[in-house]
Design a protein around this nucleic acid. Structure first.
Lengths: 200, 200
DNA sequence: CAGCCTCTCTAACGATTGTTAGAAAGATTT
DNA sequence: AAATCTTTCTAACAATCGTTAGAGAGGCTG
């Protein structure tokens, strides 16, 4: 890991726990093991660290989204209802690569803290936590509807229910205190219960 | 409003938008219109302002909870299914006196920001946003079940669904950006749709 | 009027904040 | 070996931070 990457990593951990303003340049440098002037060789000022983190996160989720789009574009690899019910598809892209992913999870926490006084972060926060997941779910279930698993109206109803549940569980277990294995397991268990209970 | 109340009011507005550490004593005093030393006549230090806000909030929600308990204890004033469906009961105590209430709403935002590095606030945050509402919903629907509206198992299923929906909507509309009338209306509209759609 | 509260002020303190100029050290190229 | 480029250092800067001592102003009680 380069010094620049190390700075961003340490800064993200600190920003996502205490908030951007509460973390000082010296806090970051002390943890990284460099002098303050070295940080200013890699970043032009404190705000630049935050901006770089946000850009990195945007790139990261754009990568995830285009990966999902690719999957959607492959018609021969048909989704099976069982795949959804056993949460194979949604789990992989929503849990493993996103909500459980340390970088993404910390970035969401950071956005949660900073969204109240930063309109750009607020918009990204809303997109990332509400709009994008809803659209992803909708795509999956509409494809299932096309295969005759259920009607379009049923699909929409299920998506609304599913999205509400997943969002609530995310805030309850994954964006509450430290992201421990215990909380991840509790989350996965409730998602599993939801999958069985949902009216497919 | 006394000077002490004015300090707490201004501090809450600032803390809930920028976070506790990002707000300086001089920021608060400037907005209130007093000198720093005057603030220290009313509060022993900066932390004391935060602690006072938390204590005030605890008292406030305890008042709300005991009010709900009283209502639950009056058997002759039977809940009607229609009251729930038209969200008369839950709206009054969850929306008007709690989520829409300026003091409570700002306190929840403050807790959202500070919970990540303060275990006491984290516990209060979890209780206030997840545990308490779930129990309140459960009480209401179990009473309806007792009156034969539906079975106990049905009640639990409905509560899980209802709670997930309300929590998601709360984060989406009421704890996202500024609490505007537009967001309140969007929230109320979705709650209304939910009430019609829910399988009673 | 004198004494005593309650509240707010002026003025400063040491510590910490973000940031910068310029020297030194290492690595790479000529 | 000399020159150049990249990276890190020492040392300081003005501004702001939370906090405090002590003086004054206003009202109430003796």
């Amino acid at each position: 890991m380069t010094t620049k990457e190390k700075i961003m990593d340490v800064a993200l951990h600190m920003f996502s726990e205490r908030g951007y303003e509460a973390v000082s340049i010296r806090d970051i440098c002390g943890e990284v093991g460099i002098k303050e002037s070295t940080l200013y060789y890699h970043f032009k000022n404190k705000k630049d660290i935050l901006d770089s983190l946000i850009e990195k996160f945007k790139d990261h989720i754009n990568g995830l989204l285009s990966h999902i789009d690719e999957m959607d574009g492959v018609p021969h690899k048909k989704l099976k209802q069982r795949d959804v019910a056993s949460s194979k598809v949604l789990d992989t892209y929503m849990m493993d690569s996103y909500l459980f992913d340390p970088f993404c999870n910390l970035m969401i926490r950071l956005m949660m803290i900073e969204q109240f006084h930063n309109e750009e972060i607020r918009a990204l926060y809303e997109k990332t936590l509400f709009t994008d997941p809803y659209n992803i779910y909708m795509n999956v279930f509409k494809r299932l509807a096309l295969q005759g698993a259920f009607s379009d109206e049923q699909a929409e109803q299920i998506v609304r229910q599913y999205h509400a549940y997943m969002t609530m569980l995310t805030f309850k277990y994954l964006l509450n205190g430290e992201l421990t294995d215990k909380r991840k397991k509790a989350y996965a268990k409730e998602v599993h219960n939801l999958m069985r209970g949902i009216s497919l």
